[in-house]
Structure formats: structure tokens, C-alpha cells
Design a protein around this nucleic acid. Sequence first.
DNA 1: GAGTGGTCTAGACCACGAA
DNA 2: TCGTGGTCTAGACCACTCT
Lengths: 234, 234
Amino acid sequence: MGSPEYIKIVEAIKGRITSEEIKPGDAIQSENLLCEEFNVSRMTVRKGLAVLVNEGYIYSIPGKGNYVCEPNLDSYTLHFDEMMATDKKGEEIRLIEVNVVKPSYEVGFNLEIPENKHVIVVKRVFLSDGHVKAFDVKYIPYYRGIPIVEKEIRYATFPEMVAKKNSIFAMTKKLKIKAIAAKDEVSQILDVMEGDAILVVEQKLLDEKDHPIGWGSMYFAGDDSGLEAIASFD
Amino acid sequence: MGSPEYIKIVEAIKGRITSEEIKPGDAIQSENLLCEEFNVSRMTVRKGLAVLVNEGYIYSIPGKGNYVCEPNLDSYTLHFDEMMATDKKGEEIRLIEVNVVKPSYEVGFNLEIPENKHVIVVKRVFLSDGHVKAFDVKYIPYYRGIPIVEKEIRYATFPEMVAKKNSIFAMTKKLKIKAIAAKDEVSQILDVMEGDAILVVEQKLLDEKDHPIGWGSMYFAGDDSGLEAIASFD
DNA sequence: GAGTGGTCTAGACCACGAA
DNA sequence: TCGTGGTCTAGACCACTCT
């Protein structure tokens, strides 16, 4: 095998873990012993162990040793992005409202702003072959001088909408996923019966000080729309 | 500051990225220049860069340089686990069925097994102060000799149920999240009206060869139940 | 050929845990 | 006190890219 030494070490130890030769909570050999076993320097052993730490297989306690992790049974990676709803052909986004308004109680609460501070509201619908698939509503605190370029907003993801004011790198994002019964504006715009099951993805963006800089929801109609997530370590 | 040199390097470069001094796609100084700038050896610089690679800030191209990543706008970490539904007091899990049955078409399709091969079905309800909050149904291919210990199964997460046969470390897990209208068994067991909105988390477990080793769904009643996810890099 | 990142070595010193 | 992991150095050689 032409793979680097540290990769061989990673694979050897992974094998011992997945084959349950060593179990969660067990210590693995000390780094010096691994040096002897694989005939490499300590830095090479440590590089291999670093990979295993990153991938969630082991953790280390200074002064004691390296230990096999309890597997994370509950961690998943979810990809969500407003533009996911427009992958295929025959799909279209319509901007149905861009406005500066006073916040409702709910919006003010979630953006942590007083009632008299205005917010930008952006409402969009996502169509597939003429049928409404999703309805998206987003609120952003309004600052004087923000340019609202409709063309840019139409195809923007939520983080991109607020990126003018805040670096995308310094932003925290949170999702809440719920099922609700359609009513009022949501049922009208999605063109479904009141009471129909709707998947809601509520999104909140926070700046580096954990202050909200955006809040809103996307509503999906129909049993066929859904989200997918894949297990991940760490 | 008493922090290690490589952490100082990490923070310095992170600062240049979040302040947009260097932008996605830009190259950062070569490792040798960073050695001079921070007065450290190349291994120390590389250790810092490795951290930035792991955290999704930069990537490197051998023979060329290190570059700032386009930020991942759509990646979230979701924590899901059947036992999440039982955090608080006054909550209870009831095992309502454990059986060996022939698979329905849907179950056989998802587990990729023939009709004549049996499956174990596990049905549980999650109660909060006497009210049904969630209904969980899981299917596992049946192999002769599998012991079914009701006490263990009652409080087990799905990966734990199949862990007897397959190492938890060698398992892939996938989720699909949907909203459906309650009907039949789901509406009866959750004690809601037919047509009420239900959040469904469908789970599939795969072995190292991508063969299904478990499939099932958990149904959540009520607008208040939902899932949360937090943005993550990588 | 000069510069880049990727791998690796053989040492060193430190803070920490256990006996 | 001894072994452990955490940090760091000053070299080295390689494969690669660019000019």
C-alpha cells in the first residue's frame, strides 16, 4: 500500500474499534507503544490519532491516555437551503412581497426588537409546473439605507439576504422543524385546505453576539416534500 | 496570552476571514511566510492550518496553496433520538407490540428483503402526563436466534435495537422528515382526529455495505413538538 | 528550477495523573 | 517519580504546480 503511515495507523485502529476488539471507554495503547508497533515517530502516531479524534472515534485525556468514544447515536447532518426547492426544471420562484413594516408581536419577540422598530418582510412562493410547492416568509430588522434589490432577493438564501450587514462567517443559524395545520395566509397561498398538514422549517440567524439578525419560516405543502439528514460523528 | 502558538495562528487567520480581510477563494500566505510572520516552525503553522481545515474555514491544494472556503450556507447538525421524547418528568414509554411478522410491501421494500422473510416489529408510545406525545414503529429483519428482551427494547434507541447484530460504529443512519395527515393506526394511537398534522421522522439504518438493517418511523402529535438543528461547518 | 503543500523524523520541554 | 499526552523545533525528502 502506498498510503501514508498515519493513514495505516488510522485504519488499523478503526478496525479494532469497529470489530469491537476495543470497546467504548477502553484505553488504546500509549503513543510510545504505538510508535514501536508501527515503527514510526511519535509525531506520525499523533497525526493518526488526531484524525481519529476529528472523526469522533477517540478522545484523549492529558496525562492519562487515549480512549474509545461512546458512539454518538443521535447526530445527523441536515442540508437545508431555500433554493433546494428549485432543483428541477419547470420550477420557478415568485417574489410576492417585499416591504418595510412594523413587526407583529411574534416577529418582534423573535428578532428581539421593540414594536416601533421596522422590519423588512420578504415573501416568496416556490412553484413547480404551476403548482405551489412552498411558501417562504422572512423578517430582517430594517436599518436606514439598506438597499432592497428585488432581483437579488428573489434567488437568495436567508443567510445571503442578511450578508450585506453581517459576515456570513460570523453567523449562527438555527432551525426548528414542525408540522402544523394549514390556516389563513398559509393555506391560501399554498392553495391547500385549512387543516392540511404542512411541514414548517423555522429559521433564525444570529450574529456573533447571539443577537437575532433574521427570523422566518418556510412552509412545504404535500406529503412528498420533506427533508433528509445523514448521520455524522462529532 | 498563555494559549499555544498554533491557536494564536488559528485565531489570527479566523479574524482575517470573518472581518473579510481575506475572502472566499483567496489564497492565504504560504506556510513558510506564516512561519516568519508568527516566528514558529512549519509544523506549528501546519497544526494551526489543520484546525482551520477541520473547522471548514480553509482548504489546501498541494503544490499551490491554502485557500479560504466558500461558506457552507446549508449545513446543520440535527440531534434526533427516540429517547429525546422522554426528557422531562411525568413521561413514560409503553411497549405496545413486539412481534415477528411478514413484511408489508412498504416494509419489505425499505428493508430490501423478500416477502417470505420475517421481520421484527416494535411499536412504542411515548406519554407525557397521560397524554400520547409520540408513536414509534420500527422494523428489523428477523434472524433465528435473536433474543427479544422486552425490557431492553422499551428504552432502546433504534441503533441500539440492531446493535446486537451490527457494530454501532459500522452503521450509517439516515432520516427523512415529513408532515403527514393523521389516519388509521397513527390517528388512533396518537388520539388525534383523522387529518391532523403529524410530524414524521422516518429512519433507516444501513450496514457497512449499505444494506438496510432497520427501518421505521416516529410520529409526533401536536404543534408544540418539533426538532431543532444548529448550523455546522463541514 | 523555484515554490508549494504533504509526510516524516528524532529529539526536546511542559503539565498532568497515578502510585 | 514515572508515564502520559500537548506543544514545538529544525531539519529532511517527496510530488506537485507554475513559469
